[in-house]
Nucleic acid binder design. Structure first.
Length: 581
RNA sequence: GGACUAGUAGUUCAGGUGGUUAGAAUAAUGGAUUGUCGAUCCAUAGGUCACGGGUUCGAAUCCCGUCUGGUCCGCCA
């Protein structure tokens, strides 16, 4: 046995106990004839004292940072206690030590405020993972995982694994593809999600399924997107949307209570997709603060100001208490909206002074009484600032959504310790793909339309109006989960495929197995999938999911530690019958 | 596919407008030190200024290209 205790557990009550510890050398503090060593493992840090008798041995066998050592000794009370660490009342008076393994000096310091940059820490991820902060993130992830499993288990959900080597479908995200050696010129795809499998499990009668499972999408990455990510994937039979929302709202409440000690007493608010788009400009509103978008078309048009008169949409927000913004700050905001990522040509503003006067950047076209109308429309009070954008509807709404978030950030309204969950419901069934000039599924092609709108699928002009029984759970402006009631009848599913532009041959080829299954007694069903990494990041107060993944990839999809992806041997290519371009 | 940003000692960074020998902190190494816990003090060593090309009498600095990291737009049912 290498150790009798961990480095985190010894306390005053252990005084006098002979112990053996093993761990990593955090620091060595040498004082002539005595030496202190901080010994670290996953559980904590314990101070070792090499006294006068043993100290000379350290001259022959010097200890360096990150050496792995084993020590025997006795737990003793410290004369100078350290209140900053749990084991700070005691130290181990060492009688014997063994160097189990030497270590090179690490390229960055293994401590909370490390000097290492991102790149280096990713390359030596196994060292980065030794750091408290990173370890705590992984511990949080594990606890969230346990909480989700506990909850789902208590509700009778059954964890069933589904395959990773499956069939490629062109819908949705790009597939990662795996060549098949035994079937030359053919390829598996890695699942973007276990969607069809969980539906087949419903057909098989496993009416409550879940899985915490990897999904793969070959698309460009972001701080909150990885090519392989983890979902809490769930599906239920004989349920309506209301049942699913209630069940998973309870799950999120349970997770919050277990992980953060936060109790949500009230039901989560719900908002329709249309409402979210109109008043927040996006389908995942951050409702920690108001600052709603106000459509100004009727208020401002027809005053001879071309920018407004020619715009599809004029939209405003009211920034509370910002009337005193300086010209410099407003210019900066203007520059901000003119960045290519936002893409507006300018920003119009009106300051509602504390004295009741209103001054705008377009006084030439709008006198004070007209500007009072702006204030009335936006709910601005003396002391507030009205910000206005105008232009093409979609771009302008989107830009204002971004500006709203930016203003929320600047005004400190996006406190990461405040959690505001929200259901967004009634998503559209379809959206129009401008590039391909066709209608595509907004959620996925297995999503059920609102039953009363099914007949609209025969009328192309109504496609944009059809709503689905589809919903997202949004937390602080981040989509952390989503799902839908599924189609479970063959004829409706065929109708859906046809609406998406597939002919009979095509959908039979791609989804014949599902259509076939629907002919053998498919129950009504629905479910949802949670972005597990994002949920962990939110609970951990971080923007980046990489902090919560043991071995993440960078934003080019590379694993810089392994240096993957990489070229493969010609022999491997030959076996796969693949020729490189 | 595109935009922005960064790359200087092991590491984190500083090095207006081009100009002598490229600095600091930290880590490392050696020495001193019996109560530290971010130990302290003294000393030492440490540089392909990412890479390639160009402008110039002269480039870490200016220009072009490439690579790498990060953030974002497009994309991600």
């Amino acid at each position: 046995m290498y150790r009798t205790h961990t480095c985190g557990e010894l306390r005053l009550e252990n005084i006098g106990t002979p112990v053996t510890l093993a761990g990593w050398v955090q620091t060595v503090r040498k004082f002539g004839s005595i030496t202190f060593v901080d010994l670290r493992d996953r559980y904590g840090i314990t101070q070792l004292l090499f006294g006068e008798a043993l100290n000379p041995q350290l001259d022959d066998q010097p200890l360096g940072r990150e050496f792995v050592i084993q020590v025997e000794g006795t737990v003793t009370e410290r004369s100078n206690k350290n209140k900053n660490i749990p084991t700070g009342d005691v130290e181990i008076t060492v009688s014997k030590f063994t160097i189990l393994n030497k270590a090179q000096t690490p390229p960055f310091t293994i401590q909370d405020d490390t000097d290492g940059g991102d790149e280096l820490r990713m390359k030596y991820r196994y060292l980065d993972l030794r750091r408290n902060i990173v370890r705590q993130n992984l511990e949080l992830r594990y606890r969230v995982n346990r909480a989700a499993r506990n909850f789902l288990d208590s509700k009778g959900f059954m964890d069933i694994e589904t395959p990773f080597l499956i069939k490629s479908t062109p819908e949705g995200a790009r597939d990662f593809v795996v060549p098949s050696r035994m079937n030359p010129n053919e390829f598996y795809a890695l699942p973007q999600s276990p969607q069809t499998f969980k539906q087949l499990l419903m057909v098989s009668g496993y009416d409550r399924y879940y899985q915490i499972v990897k999904c793969f999408r070959d698309e460009d990455l972001r701080a909150d997107r990885q090519p392989e990510f983890t979902q809490i994937d769930c599906e239920m039979s004989f349920v309506e949307q209301e049942d699913i929302l209630n069940n998973f709202e309870e799950m999120l409440k349970y997770i919050f209570k277990e992980i953060k000690g936060i109790e949500f007493k009230d039901a989560f608010p719900r908002m329709t997709y249309d409402h979210a788009m109109e008043f927040y400009g996006n389908d995942k509103p951050d409702i920690r603060f108001e600052m709603k978008l106000v459509n100004m078309n009727d208020t401002v048009k027809g005053n001879g100001f071309k920018v407004f008169d020619e715009a599809e949409l004029v939209v405003a927000i009211c920034a509370k208490g910002c009337a005193e913004y300086t010209r410099k700050q407003l210019d900066e905001l203007t520059e901000w909206v003119k960045r290519p990522q936002i893409g507006m040509t300018g920003l119009i503003y009106a300051r509602y002074g504390a004295d009741g006067s209103i001054k705008s950047s377009v006084d030439k076209f709008f006198d004070e009484s007209k500007l009072k109308g702006w204030a009335e429309k936006t709910g601005a009070q003396p002391g507030d600032l009205i910000l206005v954008l105008a232009g093409k509807e979609e771009r302008t709404r989107k830009a204002m959504s971004e500006l709203r978030l930016e203003m929320g950030e600047r005004l400190g309204l996006r406190n990461k310790d405040v959690y505001a969950p929200l259901w967004v419901v009634d998503f559209p069934l379809f959206e129009y793909d401008e590039e391909d000039k066709r209608w595509v599924a907004k959620h996925h092609p297995f999503t059920s339309p609102k039953p009363e709108q099914i007949s609209w699928m025969d009328d192309l002009s109504k496609y944009g109006n059809i709503k689905a029984n589809a919903y997202d759970i949004v937390l602080n402006g981040t989509e952390v989960g989503g799902g839908s009631i599924r189609i479970f009848q063959r004829d409706l599913q065929e109708k859906m495929f046809a609406a998406l532009g597939m002919d009979e041959e095509e959908f039979n080829h791609k989804f014949g197995f599902l259509l076939g299954a629907f002919e053998y007694g498919a129950p009504p069903h629905g479910g949802m999938a949670w972005g597990f990494d994002r949920l962990c990041a939110l609970l951990g107060g971080s923007e980046s999911i990489r902090d919560f993944i043991a071995f993440p990839k960078n934003n080019s999809g590379r694993d810089v530690m392994l240096d993957a992806p990489s070229a493969i041997d010609q022999k491997q290519l030959d076996e796969l019958q693949i020729a490189l371009k």
